[in-house]
């Protein structure tokens, strides 16, 4: 089966499970996981396909969440419009920031993106008038279409999986085009990419900004779904978690990152007794994955298929 078909089936499965699951706690948990899937799918385009690391993606999620909330609360902008506008603004912000940053490579790039994430985090904490500081921001109106209000967990659950589908579709379109081919070439053989007409730097900046767009849109939906955001949801640990999910799910596998993200972002809520130790669990998982399936779950599945 092709990877895109498998992924669409899996997303469909999640969508329909929304009709069966009764427990609002689980619905809520998987909705949040689905939003994380969007972020990780975007990050995967950057990390998995183009091979450029970002340790600041929580910053872009925060930008999407805060900008859209502020637009809606302080300027009475329609929630949908404010999510869309804030995502576009984040995209543009990433374009400007990414232009100098993506000239860096490897560890330097990791450090620079980490700093971007931290700076956004500090702003969220300290611009108290706008963001409410560490106490957070609340009072976002509920999302609605006409008279249909997304006022319970199930409605949002179904909606968010539709959004996941749209982003997965977009991702597959990109990676299966000549654009995706160029991204892989940039990842592995930058010199070859350059020699065959790929504007390497421009492509890196574009894919960086696009992945920031994914993150911001997920952030916006997150803010309006919960109706409350605070800086602690967007700290460095979150950025690292995104990278772990993308890595364990599989560099260059959208299907893999889909499964792994749902599992890894839900597990802490199920294994509550491990909550304080979760970074250890995450870290060990990364080590195990790096040792036994260096191409992540996606690569592992592909490898198995080759053998049998």
């Amino acid at each position: 089966m092709k990877e895109n078909v498998a992924s669409y089936l899996l997303i469909g499965l999640f969508f329909f499970s929304g009709f069966l699951i009764k427990n609002p706690f689980i619905l809520n948990m998987i909705s949040i996981a689905a939003l994380t899937v969007i972020v990780v799918m975007g990050l995967n385009l950057l990390l998995g396909y183009a091979g450029q690391v970002s340790l600041g993606h929580a910053g872009f999620v925060a930008l999407g969440a805060y900008l859209s909330s502020i637009l809606a609360i302080k300027f009475n902008v329609n929630p949908w419009l404010s999510i869309f506008v804030s995502s576009i603004l984040t995209f543009l912000f990433a374009l400007i920031i990414g232009y100098p940053t993506l000239k860096l490579k490897g560890h330097y790039l990791a450090m620079a993106t980490l700093a971007i994430g931290e700076i956004i985090y500090i702003f969220a904490n300290n611009l108290v008038n706008l963001t409410g500081g560490h106490q957070g921001l609340t009072g976002m109106p509920m999302l609605s279409i006409g008279n249909f209000v997304f006022n319970n967990e199930r409605k949002f659950f179904l909606f968010v999986w539709v959004v996941v589908f749209l982003f997965a579709f977009l991702s597959f379109r990109i990676v299966n085009s000549h654009f995706g081919r160029a991204l892989k070439a940039i990842h592995e053989k930058e010199l070859a990419a350059l020699s065959f007409g790929v504007n390497v730097h421009l492509y890196k900046v574009i894919i960086f900004s696009l992945s920031a767009f994914y993150a911001a849109l997920a952030g916006g939906l997150y803010a309006f779904y919960l109706g409350f955001i605070s800086p602690s949801s967007f700290d460095l640990l979150k950025s690292i978690n995104y990278v772990v999910m993308a890595f364990v799910g599989g560099i260059d596998s959208i299907f893999g990152s889909l499964i792994v993200t749902v599992v890894l972002s839900s597990l802490p809520n199920i294994l509550t007794f491990l909550q304080d130790y979760w970074p250890i669990v995450n870290g060990s998982l990364l080590i195990v994955a790096a040792m036994f399936m260096p191409k992540g779950l996606g690569g592992f599945i592909r490898w198995k298929r080759e053998i049998f």
Partner: peptide, 13 residues
């Protein structure tokens, strides 16, 4: 256009 001395093929393609 050119070729490379140390093969520059993309392994994942």
């Amino acid at each position: 256009s050119r070729t490379f001395q140390n093969i520059q093929l993309v392994d994942s393609l």
